[in-house]
Simulated assay, not measured.
Amino acid sequence: MRFKAKLSLATLAILTAAPMTTYASSVHTKWEQFKAGRAFHHLSEDGQHALVDIIQARKALAAGNTEAAIPFLYDAQKRLVAASKAATKFDAAENQLQPAPQRPVSPSHTPLTGTTTWVPVGGEFIATETFSPEKKAAVATANGQLNAGQPDKAAQTLQLVGADADFIIALAPLAQTQGAVNRATVFTEGKQTAEAIAALDQIPDSLVFVSENFAESALPQSGKTPTKSSH
């Protein structure tokens, strides 16, 4: 499958296919039945909520409704603070990450230097080139079902076709994301819509996508720290 390297906030909406509180228990039960379960369990709930808020704020700004954007930005700020205090994060230099080849970074991505705190804010299933068109369609359907908050249906879809799809995770640099949201908030409060949108548009450019296995090795629950790839 081919993927666009440039990531928009519309793409981020797809990546927020994550367990919100209302159906987290159902997800926990079903997810263990297939490969994405382990990675899915490590996603940051507050990070995911913050991303949804960011997307909604940008939509409001693009529509010229600055007043509607402000509550979303305030909530995103709170969510990111909560994410900074939760266990679902880890510290690493960017050159220690092992980016997933299926989702290269944005052409506008600027690599970070020094140790950075990363928060897993979303994920998606990836079909391989060897999948039949029917299985690729099933993976797309499963992603759509995740987006709609239907994890049980997504699990059933993949089980029925026997598709062993990879699951990749979007990592957001915490401090940089917080900075972008804070700038957008100041601009929005000052009715500087174009500047606020530009600040939010920096967020998808900062994401790095990693494999399920790397996320498991990096997150503190595993008791391990990320190391450079030998490849």
Rank of each mutant, 00 (worst) to 15 (best):
T115E: 14
S230V: 13
A24G: 07
H49T: 14
F214N: 04
Q33A: 14
K224Y: 11
V139Y: 06
P71C: 04
E45Y: 04
G37V: 09
K59Y: 09
I70R: 14
T193F: 04
S206I: 04
P204E: 01
A155S: 12
L73M: 10
L61N: 06
A83P: 02
A93H: 02
S108W: 03
L43R: 05
P226G: 08
D152M: 10
S108P: 05
A57S: 13
H41S: 11
R38Y: 01
G123T: 05
S84N: 02
D152V: 12
H109R: 06
T157I: 09
T16G: 05
E216A: 10
G47D: 09
R38N: 09
T21G: 09
V181I: 07
L15M: 12
K228Y: 00
L51R: 00
V119I: 15
H28F: 12
L171Y: 10
F90S: 03
S106H: 08
P71I: 02
F40R: 06
S229T: 11
F209H: 09
P151W: 00
H109C: 04
G37H: 03
F125C: 01
S132P: 06
Q98A: 07
P107C: 07
L12H: 02
K85E: 12
E94D: 05
Q48G: 15
L146E: 05
V161T: 15
I168G: 01
A76E: 03
A155F: 07
V181P: 04
P104H: 07
A127G: 08
I54L: 07
H49S: 09
I197L: 10
A87T: 12
Q156E: 13
T16W: 01
Q56H: 13
Y74E: 13
S132Y: 05
G64I: 05
R58H: 12
Q192D: 02
S84T: 01
G179I: 00
H231G: 14
A36I: 08
K85H: 14
I168V: 15
A68H: 05
T29K: 10
F40N: 03
V81D: 13
R38V: 11
A17F: 00
G37M: 05
Q98L: 08
P173H: 01
G64T: 06
S84G: 06
L112P: 02
F187A: 13
T157H: 06
A50V: 06
S25R: 15
L80W: 03
A17C: 08
A57V: 11
L61W: 05
A60W: 08
A82Q: 13
E32G: 12
E94P: 14
P107I: 08
K135V: 02
K4Y: 14
P133N: 14
I14V: 11
K59P: 00
H28A: 15
S106E: 01
P226Y: 11
T110R: 14
S8L: 10
L112A: 12
A215P: 06
P204S: 00
F214K: 06
A39C: 04
F131H: 05
A180P: 07
A180M: 01
A138G: 09
T66W: 03
F209Y: 13
V27K: 08
A170S: 10
M20K: 06
D91N: 11
T130Q: 14
A218F: 08
A92L: 02
K224L: 14
H28V: 11
R2A: 10
S132T: 15
G149E: 05
L146Q: 03
Q98C: 06
H49F: 04
L15Y: 12
L160T: 15
A194R: 09
A155G: 15
K228P: 04
P151D: 05
A184S: 15
S26E: 11
